[in-house]
Design a protein around this nucleic acid. Sequence first.
RNA 1: GGCCAGGUGGCGGAGUGGCUACGCAGCGGACUGCAAAUCCGUGUACACCGGUUCGAAUCCGGUCCUGGCCUCCA
Length: 478
Amino acid sequence: MSLVLYNTATRRKEPFVPFVPGRVGMYVCGPTVYDYAHLGNARPVVVFDVLYRLLKRTYANVTYVRNITDVDDKINAAATARGEPIAAITARTIAAFHEDMAALNALPPDVEPRATQHIAEMIAMIERLVASGHAYVAEGHVLFHVPSLPTYGALSGRDRRAMVAGARVEVAPFKRDPADFVLWKPSSLDLPGWESPWGRGRPGWHIECSAMSEAHLGITFDIHGGGRDLIFPHHENEVAQSTCVHGGAPLVRYWLHNGFVTVEGEKMAKSVGNIVTVRALLGEFRGEAIRLALLSTHYRQPLDFTREGLREAERTLDRWYRLVGPRRAPGGRVADGVLAALDDDLNTPLAVAELHKLEEPAALRGAGDLLGLLQQDRDAWFHSTPRQSFSTTGIASAEAVGHPGAYQTGAPDQDYFAEGTSMAGSLSESVINERIQQRETARKARDYTTSDSIRAQLLARGIVLEDGPQGTTWRRAT
RNA sequence: GGCCAGGUGGCGGAGUGGCUACGCAGCGGACUGCAAAUCCGUGUACACCGGUUCGAAUCCGGUCCUGGCCUCCA
């Protein structure tokens, strides 16, 4: 394997060489848990899941860390707005996140640290920053002093003075420099808080990732991933904190960032009202189709998510499932073309094209395993509806998770899915099989009027019949 | 305003100097009682204008357009 990755820090593709031979440490920024995961959250999870699978093929020791941010002002705001304890919101959201990502065939990370479990490490880190002159205390806050680090801005490629000039947010008066950012801030008693040398307070956003990556991956690790929007300020600030704490030792060797997701050509944003949650989408499409749609565009490119794109992904999976054989079986050797595509900076669209060239079931299953696709039995795929697929993986319904109204994402979102009315799932398999038998009888009697009417009836309920050499099979229309 | 991406056939989407992917849709055919599925055939695209070159979608310059970031949005 000769993996090449595009490194945001150098803006070039570079051969991937682990810092410690044979061992790989990878950190991906995970969700802030106050609401269901949307497509923008799902893309990095799926993309870096493919990278994780690819790395595990080659390296015996891969540690994948994906954090959970469970202390954040957005969570506090949600708790206030809903009149619900923070712990209840985070616990429920984390459970939903796990279910949704599992439905997308994303493997769980090796470590999933939570910010609230690493407060002590954060405080220790901040103390060192204060002691070394990189941070200062002001009005109960601890701030990182950006001018104390001459190389600040290298990752995002921006000039400090230009940033200040373009700043559109009011600068807090106690900052020594407009670019300084918060490491620790005071908490009133109604907000989550921990005792610290600077009084009861809570961490700023960036420090958690510095603390958690050090705790689980050490001072310098190989890969750090996330969405493009995190390059600045989040990752820039992470670099600043960590390198200052670690006496200049580099934090990350390869920075990877995925592009944004738009929906039907529009930016997905709360203000537009077109946030598409994975959970809502899973009600209409199967997880593997969503996953394939996410992998059909190169991860660094912008991805426009459309209903038609999802349908195409379903048709593609239909075709592959017809070829892979009835039972889920261990995959065979991964085709060279597929590997070469993924080795080239995770070129998943090219890998998908390579899959189209495969005809052998074992080869398809093998490539599918690496991409996290084709993970079920053929019948399970053809007979399942989105809902069923969702529940057979042990996922509780949105209602069972509770307070569905709390996750109201607005009318436009509802409209997006309203047109996808589906009758599939309204017929049980026994009824379908019974009708197929009746049709068989009619066909043997050459009563094609009856047989065609049975097929038409089933089609109206979303069931497609196919007469093959081995008899009649059925599938859910998509 | 600054910085950064991107504009490829009806659609999606790779490709970054010559060999013009791949998929979907469409069209024609085979198969089928009819379908579906499958198979065969079928489409010479690279925003615009210059330049470099024997040769450019691919390199250089310019123009237009779209999107993102610019202090807590993946």
